[in-house]
Design a protein around this nucleic acid. Structure first.
Lengths: 115, 115
DNA sequence: CAGTATCCCAACCGATACTG
DNA sequence: CAGTATCGGTTGGGATACTG
């Protein structure tokens, strides 16, 4: 992993920093995780799974992840509207790394020693 | 990975959410990554590697990660002060998951289609 | 060297109301 | 249903100055 540190880590103002911030953001991880099972989810279903997210932040997060090429939006022009979100191939690759990490965190929370 | 979604993801106000936020925070990931090579690093060295971090945020991040049991601080009582930080076994486990993720992100930044 | 203390601004973000 | 618009407060976080 030395390759990651030429002289620092993720140099400032580098595109990787931006992507890192999007993916690692409070709601970004939860949305990616929610979609990590492969099945497309509707807006309301994503919202239900990312417990606590506001409409505003959900919209913003989905737009950001979509423009990063990780999530895709598909709207069926019916009324009432039916919109689905799912991971792109890139998003699935990312989720492949993200899910084990989240599982570790879920498993180790509460075991912290607050010394 | 179904186990992660009993009815939602990382239920609100759950300890796992807190740990998640600490680990995934802007500077948390960079500090963990900086320490992921195993060798203890001095304050100034951590700061150099997590390019762009302010003294305030570095102190806060290190304290948080330490109280989460992921990072340990060791101060040698000499003058001038010599302090080292390194990952705990738990921190190393976590880094084992984090590093591949960061490598993927570093590798895929810039390939985004900003449609 | 390795921090702490203080000030202060900006952005994040939640709440609410409204719309196609 | 699936959003957008607007407002306002809380807090993240930078700059600077100071200390053991």
């Amino acid at each position: 992993m030395r390759e990651l540190y030429p002289d620092g880590v993720f140099p400032e103002a580098c595109p990787s920093r931006t992507l890192l911030d999007h993916v690692m953001s409070k709601w970004g991880v939860l949305v990616l995780l929610a979609l990590s099972e492969g099945e497309p989810l509707r807006w309301s279903e994503v919202r239900r799974r990312a417990q606590g997210v506001s409409e505003k932040m959900l919209a913003q997060t989905l737009r950001t992840l979509a423009s990063d090429g990780l999530v895709e939006r598909h709207a069926r022009p019916v009324v009432p509207p039916h919109v689905e979100y799912f991971l792109t191939p890139a998003g699935e690759q990312l989720a492949g790394h993200l899910v084990p990490l989240m599982q570790w965190i879920a498993g180790h929370a509460g075991e912290v020693d607050t010394s």
